[in-house]
């Protein structure tokens, strides 16, 4: 690629990123200005629209010294466990569905597909009753469980595994490698980008989860960030300053992790080579 093309492409990319970032920038600015300034500079456009003219850390400090700190730790713990356990379960299932030719494979695949068509909020109440009978209220287990069997992640990984040439597997099996060896030594190492994508699915499900944590874990010790943020709005009053400060934390953490994930993608570019 020549230099001019890189320049054009870079500028376009940066422009797109700015467009996507503007609403987030406004969130950050709103978190760092006095509460009464948040809606003051909406129109006409002025410096105040996008810059915190009366900069203050008051809301960030208030938020961080309250129970929100515990909530975000809970979110991180729950999400991390979900991703690790979920990846193990989903990739194993996807491997069987993509590679092993067994009777009933179609039925199992249809069950997986149906499972991600069901709107989770609509079944949260009956699921809550089951979990209550198992005494899983206010536990990490109760929070993590609904996130681990993700039909969409299974589907994604299956799509990717289907694309791995079967000659690799056949050669390995002739050399005496078993099914688990094929899965662990051949398929998983070749599927890092797909595993990252699957992790993203699991991450978004758990990080965005709201109704379920609200039902299963309302005790302050197990509150997650998405629930904690909603509590800054009460019937008569919404504390936008704290909501935006909390949103800042909730988005900064994935920002750091996602930038790291992107390195996984870049590594894959380097190994397979760019396309131009």
């Amino acid at each position: 690629m020549n230099n001019n093309a890189t320049m054009v492409r870079t500028s376009l990319t940066v422009l797109c990123a700015i467009l996507f970032a503007l609403p987030l920038w406004w969130v950050a600015v709103s978190a760092l200005r006095p509460e009464n300034d948040i809606f003051r500079y909406l129109s006409p456009l002025s410096w105040g629209t996008l810059l915190p003219l009366n900069f203050t850390l008051e809301h960030v400090v208030e938020l961080w010294s309250g129970p929100f700190r515990l909530a975000i730790m809970n979110s991180i713990i729950v999400t991390t466990v979900t991703i690790l356990v979920g990846l193990a379960i989903c990739s194993a299932a996807a491997f069987a569905l993509a590679i092993i030719d067994f009777p009933g494979r179609n039925i199992v695949f249809i069950v997986m597909v149906v499972s991600f068509l069901i709107p989770f909020d609509a079944i949260a109440v009956p699921l809550y009753q089951t979990m209550r009978n198992l005494n899983l209220q206010n536990t990490y287990t109760g929070l993590v469980l609904p996130g681990i069997g993700n039909g969409l992640a299974v589907f994604l990984l299956r799509q990717f595994f289907l694309g791995i040439p079967k000659e690799l597997r056949e050669a390995a099996m002739i050399d005496g490698m078993g099914w688990f060896g094929v899965f662990w030594r051949i398929y998983l190492p070749l599927s890092v980008p797909a595993l990252i994508s699957a992790a993203l699915i699991l991450f978004v499900f758990q990080w965005q989860a709201y109704l379920w944590p609200l039902l299963i874990a309302p005790a302050p010790d197990y509150k997650v960030a998405a629930v904690a943020i909603a509590q800054f709005s009460t019937q008569y009053d919404v504390n936008y300053a704290l909501i935006f400060a909390a949103a800042l934390f909730i988005s900064l953490i994935p920002m750091v992790i996602l930038t790291g994930f992107q390195r996984g993608f870049s590594a894959s570019v380097a190994s397979t080579g760019g396309k131009e």
């Binding site: 990319t13 609403p23 987030l24 943020i229 996602l258």
Partner: peptide
């Protein structure tokens, strides 16, 4: 970084 920024909105609570 640019990719992460474009992806970031999905990580923010939809209520926000």
């Amino acid at each position: 970084l640019w990719r992460a920024i474009i992806l970031l909105p999905v990580a923010i609570p939809q209520s926000v």
